[in-house]
Design a protein around this nucleic acid. Structure first.
Length: 529
RNA sequence: GCCGGUAUCGUCUAGGGGUCAGGACACGUGGUUCUCAGCCACGGGACCGGGGUUCGAAUCCCCGUACCGGUACCA
């Protein structure tokens, strides 16, 4: 090395990749690995590459590939190179790179760094059992190591099934400096000769990753720690090809509450499930970044770009983290409060449709939703809980409310307020906004002499049908505006209106009774003197 | 079995030879709002065990233990 002149770091700019196999929904643990890669590329001005590892023909499908891509995009991750983005080092699907693996296998074979193996699955299985029984490591016996190349070729040409195995050097230590774990050392004595090319001609994982990472110029391999013991095999392959290996960083896995790897029996595990339940993408991404990493002093709720600016691989923790649904809920609540009302309205639509409260929303419906949903979202963990908070609009029943003994008791004690309310509302114009509602409350205070809880809580019971929910300032005007939806302009629904009046504005919502109707119905259901 | 990895409040973490071991989520108590959520204040709660090095160990070393991963013609 000559002193003086600055030597450009070959690892800068960084090229990192996420390489899922399309065999199922994107797991949140893998999503976190993808996110770490993205954060690193984004924060360092590097390149993020998406490669699809679909060499398991049995389990891989284009549908899963689509699903994974959709989830990555949903989370806000994008890639400069890869499937659907293109790039100079493609193709980016392993099934389209078969010629490359074949060529490199031939090269290894030619240099005797690899050899053909004709052992049958049964033979291999018997070997393994024997080794285990004798307390030896169950690695490949090396039976076919000594078959002369010519003989092997003849057998292959005669149609005998064979795999290509890598010749692992004996008695060597393979050492690498893991960016998150420090020095890791393996002895080749415990590594059996790995299969490079399967008998069906497809490359095995350990071979394909190396060829791809090398040819794609990957500088940093960030992946789950389940790959840590694959690393020495891969390093040996880099060596055999004379390639400079990338830096490796093995991040820990995401666990369930019982400290076993997060799986179905813990509940939701895929990005898709969290999306469907109404988790916001920025919330999931932010939360995932917080498992095993901390943005340092201050607020940990930060936009992706800010996380990227602070992210350093060296700061990623070594121990596995438990996926904490409570904390995710907290993060999601935070972003729910920040979200744009119309965005929230649109996201809420499918959840309302599931309750059959809504068919296809019109623009007016969406505007209406946008005026209530933020208030409902303010006290909820996820979007799928919003229907519960909007039940007062679409599923009001005075009778059902009074079936609750506590509600009944309170209503009994507030008859004067309830009677006054019913009277007030039949006389007044619809309380279409906060000011109108407050003015009405003021008049009721004067009429009844009640105030505070004694006044407002009965009003809540009567107009929303329950003891708790969205603040009345928002709920009551929402009821009133909702009651106008799908009704002839300027007046409430009357018998004969349906389908008869050309002025009816269409609405996908189930009809919402007005405050006046509610008060009358409640007053009547309460009965008595 | 063998190989590798990991170990700070219930959870995510900060720290790292001398700290009252800090923060966040969750939890408890009180306050505030018509209610729920929230918000504010206060509070309980941790360095896996055992040896060693050291004046001093949660921090360094060793040995255990527990958990996780690998040991595939899955990735």
């Amino acid at each position: 090395m000559s002193a003086g002149s600055p030597i450009p770091d070959p690892r800068s700019p960084m090229r990192v990749r996420f390489a899922p196999s399309p065999t199922g929904q994107l797991h949140v643990g893998n999503a976190r690995t993808a996110l770490f890669n993205w954060l690193l590329a984004r924060g360092s001005g590097g390149t993020f590459i998406l490669r699809i590892e679909d060499t398991d023909v049995e389990r891989s499908s284009r549908e899963w590939e689509r699903a994974i891509i959709e989830d990555l995009r949903w989370m806000g991750l994008d890639w400069h190179e890869g499937v659907e983005a293109g790039g100079a080092r493609g193709p980016y699907r392993q099934s389209e790179r078969l010629h490359l693996y074949r060529a490199h296998a031939v090269e290894l074979l030619a240099h005797d760094r690899a050899y053909r193996c004709f052992c049958s699955a049964d033979q291999l299985e018997a070997d393994r059992r024997a080794a285990l029984a004798e307390g030896r490591p169950p690695k490949y016996s090396g039976r076919c190591r000594g078959i002369p190349r010519d003989a092997a070729r003849r057998r292959v040409e005669a149609g005998e099934p064979a795999v290509v195995r890598f010749r692992v050097p004996d008695r060597r230590d393979v050492v690498f400096d893991d960016v998150v774990r420090g020095e890791v050392r393996f002895s080749t004595d415990v590594i059996g000769d790995p299969v490079l090319v399967r008998s069906d001609g497809y490359p095995a994982y350990n071979f394909a990753v190396v060829v791809d990472d090398a040819l794609m110029g990957i500088t940093h391999v960030i992946r789950g720690e389940d790959h840590i013991s694959n690393t020495p095999r891969q390093l040996l392959l880099y060596e055999a090809f004379g390639w400079t290996p990338p830096a490796f960083a093995h991040v820990s896995l995401v666990m369930g509450p019982d400290h076993s790897p997060l799986s179905k029996r813990h509940g939701a595990t895929s990005v898709k499930e969290f999306r469907d339940r109404g988790c916001l993408p920025e919330a999931l991404a932010n939360y995932l970044a917080l498992i095993g990493w901390s943005p340092g002093e201050g607020n940990e709720l930060l936009p992706l770009d800010e996380l990227a600016a602070r992210f350093r691989l060296e700061d990623v923790g070594r121990s596995a983290g438990v996926f904490d649904v409570e904390k995710l809920a907290w993060v999601n609540r935070h972003y729910l409060k920040l979200a744009d009302p119309m965005r929230l309205a649109r996201l809420t639509v499918p959840h309302l449709q599931r309750e059959a409260w809504l068919s296809e929303p019109t623009d007016a419906d969406l505007n209406f939703l946008a005026s209530v949903v933020p208030a409902a979202a303010a006290s909820v963990d996820r979007l799928d809980q919003i229907p519960g908070r909007l039940r007062f609009l679409f599923d009001y029943s005075a009778r059902r409310a009074l079936d609750d003994p506590a509600v009944r008791a309170e209503a009994e004690g507030a008859r004067s307020v309830i009677a006054a309310l019913a009277e007030e509302l039949t006389a007044a114009a619809p309380l279409l906004d906060r000011e109108a509602f407050r003015a009405a409350v003021g008049r009721l205070r004067d009429r009844t002499g009640q105030k505070g809880r004694a006044l407002l809580h009965p009003i809540r019971l009567v107009l929303t049908g329950g003891p708790e929910g969205v603040e009345l300032d928002v709920a009551v005007p929402a009821v009133e505006r909702g009651a106008l939806l799908g009704r002839p302009k300027g007046r409430p629904l009357q018998t004969g209106d349906v389908g008869a009046d050309l002025q009816v504005r269409p609405s996908g919502f189930r009809p919402i009774p007005s405050a006046a109707d509610r008060a009358a119905a409640f007053h009547e259901a309460l009965g008595g003197p």
